[in-house]
Simulated scan of single mutants.
Amino acid sequence: MKGYTKPVLLITIILLIDQISKFWVKLNMTINQQFKVIGDKVLIHFIENPGMAYGMEFGGEYGKLFLSVFRIIAVIGIGYGLHYMIKNKYNRGFILNVALIFAGAMGNIIDSAFYGMIFSESTPFQKAVLFPEGGGYATFLHGYVVDMLHFPLINGTFPDWFPFWGGERFQFFSPIFNVADSAITVGVIMILIFQKRYFKEEHVENSNVNSEIVED
């Protein structure tokens, strides 16, 4: 089990934080309810996302089913890749970043697969109930992903001379997301930033192995 401890621990922590935060929001807030954490810049704003990350949607019921199945296949692939990387002693930083991506994908799959079966529907007027009489609001793989993190850091208006959007209001950062989305984003960004280091070390290790084979 050597080499698995840190990735498994990281995945477990991300999943726990993600699911605990989603359960709390689902059971204690109504749709579109929000409250301030730090002024107007850090908000908890409850929405449900039937599609992709950061509030994007994908093609109705069949699109939803396709996306859920695709997520499951992707997670299986990432999980196998993570096992292979640990077994073959890839760069530890790279492994942890892949573990972040795996945990984030798993977190959103749990919502899609099971939330529709275990929760009643959230509405602007009513909080959800866990294990309601008569069953949940959707079938297996048709649940909605819970989003709640909102950081509208900058609000302003485009100048009149600005092409296309002159005079219109804008907000940065407008998407509403969750801990799982954040884990995926951080993992991908870290891999992009440090890819030369990760793959350079891997190339050096492979070169050393090949040299040892030739000398033998």
Score class of each variant (00 low, 15 high):
31 I>N: 07
36 K>M: 12
166 G>K: 10
172 F>N: 02
13 I>P: 02
151 F>R: 04
138 A>S: 06
104 G>C: 02
40 D>M: 01
49 N>H: 05
5 T>D: 15
90 Y>W: 12
6 K>T: 13
201 E>M: 14
195 Q>H: 14
124 P>Q: 03
207 S>P: 10
53 A>N: 02
53 A>G: 07
186 V>M: 07
20 I>N: 00
154 I>K: 04
194 F>E: 08
189 I>C: 05
192 L>M: 09
8 V>L: 13
26 K>F: 01
71 R>G: 06
30 T>R: 09
1 M>E: 07
100 L>G: 04
43 L>K: 05
91 N>A: 07
50 P>M: 05
1 M>Y: 14
177 F>R: 00
65 L>D: 11
85 M>V: 09
105 A>D: 01
118 I>E: 06
182 S>Y: 03
5 T>Y: 15
178 N>V: 01
45 H>K: 03
52 M>Q: 09
181 D>I: 01
86 I>N: 09
59 G>Y: 14
185 T>Q: 03
83 H>F: 14
201 E>P: 12
26 K>V: 03
58 F>P: 05
17 I>L: 06
4 Y>W: 15
35 F>T: 07
129 V>F: 03
216 D>Y: 15
136 G>N: 04
159 P>H: 09
64 K>M: 11
147 D>H: 01
125 F>I: 11
148 M>V: 02
82 L>Y: 03
215 E>T: 10
16 L>F: 09
178 N>D: 05
211 S>D: 13
115 Y>R: 06
92 R>Y: 14
86 I>K: 10
142 H>V: 15
141 L>G: 06
97 N>R: 04
97 N>I: 05
64 K>I: 13
155 N>Q: 14
90 Y>I: 14
192 L>H: 06
147 D>A: 00
210 N>C: 07
86 I>D: 07
22 K>E: 00
85 M>G: 06
40 D>H: 02
165 W>E: 15
68 S>F: 13
172 F>E: 05
135 G>Y: 06
50 P>V: 05
74 A>P: 10
158 F>Q: 12
199 F>Q: 08
60 G>K: 13
130 L>D: 02
136 G>L: 04
205 E>S: 13
153 L>F: 08
152 P>Y: 00
92 R>K: 15
116 G>P: 08
171 Q>I: 15
1 M>D: 11
71 R>C: 14
203 H>K: 15
38 I>M: 07
121 E>D: 10
95 I>Y: 08
117 M>W: 12
168 E>H: 15
96 L>V: 10
93 G>M: 11
16 L>K: 01
134 G>T: 13
13 I>V: 11
88 N>Y: 11
182 S>F: 01
132 P>Q: 03
117 M>C: 12
153 L>N: 00
70 F>Y: 13
173 F>E: 00
164 F>H: 14
12 T>G: 12
118 I>Q: 08
105 A>E: 02
163 P>M: 03
135 G>P: 10
30 T>G: 04
115 Y>P: 08
90 Y>G: 05
167 G>D: 11
23 F>V: 00
100 L>R: 00
172 F>Y: 09
20 I>D: 00
128 A>K: 02
87 K>C: 10
200 K>R: 14
183 A>T: 03
213 I>L: 13
57 E>S: 11
31 I>Q: 07
67 L>F: 15
123 T>K: 02
138 A>D: 07
215 E>G: 10
144 Y>N: 13
70 F>I: 15
70 F>V: 12
55 G>H: 09
25 V>G: 04
134 G>Y: 09
198 Y>D: 06
